[in-house]
């Protein structure tokens, strides 16, 4: 699904990431961890084509990102759902419409979204806030809305950057269960987090691998978690 080969990335100064080789197989479940500022968000951006590697090759759903046109990137994002760390919405549209936005922009809005949308909103516990505006949401509600928006297209891959950063333990378990559920349906999942207890909780339910960024490189963490 997503393949990084000897990838390096630098924002202009020294290299932030060097010699990264990762392969996310279809249906796999990965965690990405590492200290703050290690480059987790940067790595995820490489995985959805928001950044181009400064060295090495990134292959997304079989295509080299360097060969992708702007429209190809747009199509790619319909198949890779992303929960952004600093999630942003269209603040003038109600939450429900924001969650359905990927359907709208891909021309699949309207009638098709009805039941699925309601079910999904119930899943993330936002049914009561459907007609509220995004600026009115709490931090945790925003993250739940972000997750709902990321999965509404039923993407092949779900990338989540600190999806449980602002929610309580119970809610984080619920979001995790949703992600595990998606994984069982065959979706590839990658979650960036530094919440080790979340990783432990997940490991009890799903076969998850943990990637750790340390010293600009990526390591497969052992069973020591």
């Amino acid at each position: 699904m997503i393949e990084l080969e000897n990838v390096a990335y630098s924002y202009g100064g020294g290299e932030l990431l060097s010699d990264i080789s990762v392969k996310l197989a279809p249906g796999s479940f990965h965690f990405l961890t590492g200290p703050s500022g290690a480059g987790k968000t940067t790595l995820l951006k490489l995985c959805y084509g928001a950044l181009l590697p400064t060295a090495g090759t990134v292959r997304l759903l079989g295509a080299d990102v360097r060969t992708l046109q702007r429209d190809d990137i747009a199509m790619l994002r319909r198949r890779i759902g992303v929960v952004h760390q600093d999630v942003q919405f269209l603040d003038h549209l109600p939450v429900a419409e924001n969650i359905a936005l990927p359907l709208t922009v891909s021309g699949r809005g309207g009638a098709a979204q009805g039941d699925d949308l309601e079910e999904l909103m119930a899943w993330v516990g936002l049914t009561g806030r459907a007609q509220g505006l995004p600026p009115e949401l709490s931090g945790g509600e925003r993250q739940r809305a972000a997750l709902a928006r990321a999965v509404i297209m039923s993407p092949d891959v779900v990338l989540a950057d600190e999806p449980t950063g602002n929610v309580d333990w119970e809610m984080s378990q619920r979001l995790l269960r949703l992600l595990i559920e998606l994984n069982r349906m065959g979706k590839t999942v990658l979650i960036a987090t530094h919440d080790l207890s979340l990783i432990r909780a997940a490991k009890a339910q799903v076969q998850a691998r943990v990637l750790r960024i340390a010293n600009r490189r990526i390591q497969l963490a052992g069973a020591d978690l």
Partner: peptide, 16 residues
């Protein structure tokens, strides 16, 4: 600008 960035991120084409 923010609206455009959000639209890009959720898979809107430039044309849209």
């Amino acid at each position: 600008a923010q609206v455009i960035a959000v639209l890009r991120l959720v898979g809107a084409t430039d044309r849209y």
